[in-house]
């Protein structure tokens, strides 16, 4: 054939990370938002109300009986004690839901990622895009919840504004680990392990009472949970009782995010470019 050399409408991306990335995670995010808009925004809304209900029932109900709790020497009303914990939980829930069940379906049933990898996207674009989507959702929940807290008078410090980036960091950590976990899951039965991890973490991570009630060994175990670090981090910011431990909490999530992204893009490469 003597046809003139045809040039594709798509410009060829530069080689990044040995063919792992096309530098276009934005298109993955865009697709996610478009799909959410035209389908399941009601499901998205439902995730917001869960922690709000906890706050109303526990904060007002139990709060009346318990009164105040001692945080690093400062006395904090019960409602203001559990609200930041629930804020961290809402970030976690939003991120985990998006990065586990949603990813599980796209991975095993929708074949969505296989399709994406037929284009000039790379596994890293898919991983970064999907994690960003999950943390966007976590971020939206958190901002809504923070507004509820403000209205109920549970924000004790102007530092609380920093809770927004903190919540996004928490969501990012959970989203990347959640997606890494899901990339190994093949069946529904395996996915059932998720609540087995999530529920105890929610109940015992200093969410509703200080961990000092536990024996030392259990305290150490709780301090290994990611949620505990999230709860402590947000609580410092909304109550204004900040200690140098804040750097440990932030560091924990930075490491979690990094590990998650590395695992996810490796797994996507193994799963789809193997």
């Amino acid at each position: 054939m003597t046809a003139a050399v045809r040039v594709s409408a798509a410009t060829a991306p530069k080689r990044r990370f040995g063919g792992m990335s096309g530098g276009n995670a934005r298109a993955v995010i865009e697709r996610g938002l478009r799909a959410t808009m035209s389908n399941n925004y009601l499901v998205v809304l439902s995730g917001f109300f869960e922690p709000v209900f906890y706050l109303l029932s526990m904060g007002i109900g139990l709060g009346g009986i318990i009164g105040a709790i001692d945080v690093d020497g400062a006395s904090v009303p019960y409602g203001a004690y559990i609200a930041p914990a629930l804020l961290a939980v809402s970030a976690m829930n939003g991120a985990i839901y998006d990065s586990t069940w949603n990813v599980f379906f796209k991975l095993n049933f929708g074949k969505l990622y296989q399709t994406m990898l037929l284009t000039s996207l790379g596994p890293l674009d898919v991983a970064v895009g999907e994690i960003t989507l999950a943390l966007l959702r976590g971020g939206v929940y958190a901002i809504g919840f923070l507004i509820v807290m403000q209205v109920m008078g549970l924000v004790l410090s102007p530092l609380a504004i920093l809770a927004i980036p903190a919540v996004i960091l928490i969501a990012a950590g959970f989203a990347s680990i959640g997606m890494a976990f899901t990339s190994y899951m093949k069946t529904f039965q395996q996915m059932d392990w998720l609540p087995m991890v999530m529920l105890p973490m929610f109940l015992f991570s200093a969410t509703f009472f200080p961990i000092t009630v536990y024996p030392e060994a259990i305290q150490i175990m709780v301090q290994c949970f990611p949620l505990w670090h999230g709860v402590e981090l947000i609580r410092m910011l909304t109550t204004g009782v900040v200690s140098s431990m804040i750097w440990v909490h932030i560091g924990y999530y930075v490491v979690m995010l990094g590990v998650g992204i590395v695992v996810v893009s490796r797994r996507l490469r193994a799963l789809f470019l193997g």
């Binding site: 594709s8 798509a10 410009t11 060829a12 991306p13 530069k14 080689r15 990044r16 040995g18 063919g19 990335s21 096309g22 697709r31 478009r34 799909a35 035209s38 389908n39 929708g110 074949k111 969505l112 296989q114 399709t115 990898l117 037929l118 284009t119 000039s120 996207l121 790379g122 470019l273």
Partner: peptide, 26 residues
């Protein structure tokens, strides 16, 4: 293809054996 996946794929059209259209979109 082992190292330049995105660049090669930008010039290719692929029709896989199974339809893998995005069911969440129109």
């Amino acid at each position: 293809p082992n190292t330049d996946g995105p660049a090669i794929r930008s010039q290719l059209g692929v029709v896989p054996q199974e339809d893998n259209l995005d069911q969440e979109l129109r």
